[in-house]
Design a protein around this nucleic acid. Sequence first.
DNA 1: TATTGTTATACTCTATAACTATA
DNA 2: TATAGTTATAGAGTATAACAATA
Lengths: 160, 160
Amino acid sequence: MVNKLHSIVASTTAAEALERLFLVAGALGDRMAAGLAERGLTRARAAVIWLVHREGPVTQRRLAGLLDVTPRNVTGLVDALERDGFVVRNPHPTDRRATLVGLSQLGRTTATRLAAENHAGATRLFAGVDAADLHRFVSILDHVLTRLTPPSAPDEQALR
Amino acid sequence: MVNKLHSIVASTTAAEALERLFLVAGALGDRMAAGLAERGLTRARAAVIWLVHREGPVTQRRLAGLLDVTPRNVTGLVDALERDGFVVRNPHPTDRRATLVGLSQLGRTTATRLAAENHAGATRLFAGVDAADLHRFVSILDHVLTRLTPPSAPDEQALR
DNA sequence: TATTGTTATACTCTATAACTATA
DNA sequence: TATAGTTATAGAGTATAACAATA
């Protein structure tokens, strides 16, 4: 009886937590999209810039794997980023089928500025949260992530 | 000096927390989209069903406000949902310009099933998390949400 | 024969602008 | 004159399928 009551209370609170998590995720996503739009970027394109910034020049095939989208999709994203001057396409030194995508100067400065803004934004959002509480907060996020992400999957969750 | 060191540590952890939050949000979104796809739904369409389920029959104009999208967008979403049998359009009793969007029987059972699955999923995701920790977790999410959402905005954040 | 990137085609979400029918 | 919903048009992200060049 006690157990049953306990589980009911716990599950209700879990639903509230999930609802709140969705709310924060949505607001966070909107805020990020707005910031990116000011630079003429979208989330998908910013993800490409971010990945290339972390990985160095990569083939589109690899990008498709890292982003977990189709190669055709990468073609479109890189087309737009190249047109807007964020990335450059270069021939692969040994494999003449492949293309290496690298950052232009604009792409590099954009990546570092986005990282700085991200860092500043995070500091502002969590300002006033006790260090121990923040640590527990991250622990719970990890807990959720573990139950959410199927084990295995080597590249798929690299950024997303 | 102590203060400076403290702020450096805190800001670093905040960036980690934000990164983890993005990770969870992405995985959560993917999971949800996959579940909806099994029922022939997308996130945008499910949001309509969810709102109509909560509000009862609503005009498309009101839906546009609640979803924070353009009226034209609502037309498309309702078109698809009506075609697939989730909602029905009915004339507004007093305003002949307006259309009331309501749930069909399929829409109702879908809404209740999605709610049940959501509840079960939340319970599973947070299983093993201490009640006090979960409460603090939600408090931090609220803390972040407060700093993220500009005060005012009456309808905009109704669901999102 | 397999892989890399592309063209072709299509669906979904989203937006702005112009228009019709009503208030 | 203002409002509800639509048609017209467009951009962005995504997918599958077919194809060329190269491994």
